[in-house]
Structure formats: C-alpha cells, structure tokens
Amino acid sequence: SADYSSLTVVQLKDLLTKRNLSVGGLKNELVQRLIKDDEESKGE
C-alpha cells in the first residue's frame, strides 16, 4: 500500500477530500482511514 505516513496532514486531507472521506482526527487516524479505504476498494 502507499506510504501515507510520509505525507503531510495537508496532503492526507486532500486525498481524503477527493475520496469523500472524513478529514477529522489526528494524522494517524487519517492514515488509517486511507489504508482502510484502499483495502475496501480492492475488495470490489
């Protein structure tokens, strides 16, 4: 998976916004949300 932890919070929020995901929470939560979304989209 992508190394989201190396991105800035601003970059993470931009990715979340593009996916229509919540941008609330700490950086670690944003990273986990993106990883979870990646895993769910692979399952389709």
Rank of each mutant, 00 (worst) to 15 (best):
S1C: 14
S1A: 13
A2Y: 14
A2F: 14
A2M: 15
A2C: 15
D3F: 09
D3Y: 11
D3G: 07
D3R: 08
Y4E: 02
Y4L: 05
Y4W: 01
Y4M: 03
S5L: 12
S5V: 09
S6A: 10
S6V: 07
L7A: 05
L7V: 02
L7K: 05
L7Q: 06
T8F: 00
V9M: 09
V9L: 09
V9A: 05
V9Y: 04
V10S: 15
V10D: 15
Q11T: 06
Q11I: 06
L12S: 00
L12K: 00
K13Y: 03
K13T: 08
D14N: 09
D14A: 08
D14G: 07
D14E: 13
L15E: 10
L16H: 01
L16V: 03
K18R: 08
K18L: 07
K18D: 08
R19G: 03
N20F: 06
N20I: 04
N20Q: 09
N20E: 07
N20P: 00
N20S: 08
L21C: 05
S22Y: 06
S22Q: 09
S22H: 11
V23A: 10
V23E: 07
V23P: 09
V23G: 07
G24A: 15
G24S: 15
G25K: 01
G25L: 01
G25M: 01
L26D: 15
L26G: 15
K27F: 10
N28I: 12
N28G: 11
N28Q: 13
N28D: 15
N28K: 10
E29F: 00
E29T: 07
E29C: 08
L30R: 00
L30T: 01
L30H: 01
V31K: 04
Q32S: 10
Q32N: 11
Q32K: 10
R33G: 02
R33P: 03
L34C: 02
I35A: 07
I35Y: 06
K36C: 08
D37I: 03
D37P: 02
D37S: 12
D37E: 05
D37V: 04
D38G: 04
E39G: 08
E39R: 11
E39V: 10
E39P: 03
E39C: 10
E39F: 11
E39N: 11
E39W: 11
E40M: 13
E40S: 11
S41T: 12
S41C: 10
S41F: 10
S41H: 15
S41K: 15
K42G: 11
K42F: 10
G43M: 13
G43Y: 11
G43H: 14
E44T: 13
E44Y: 11
E44H: 14
E44D: 12
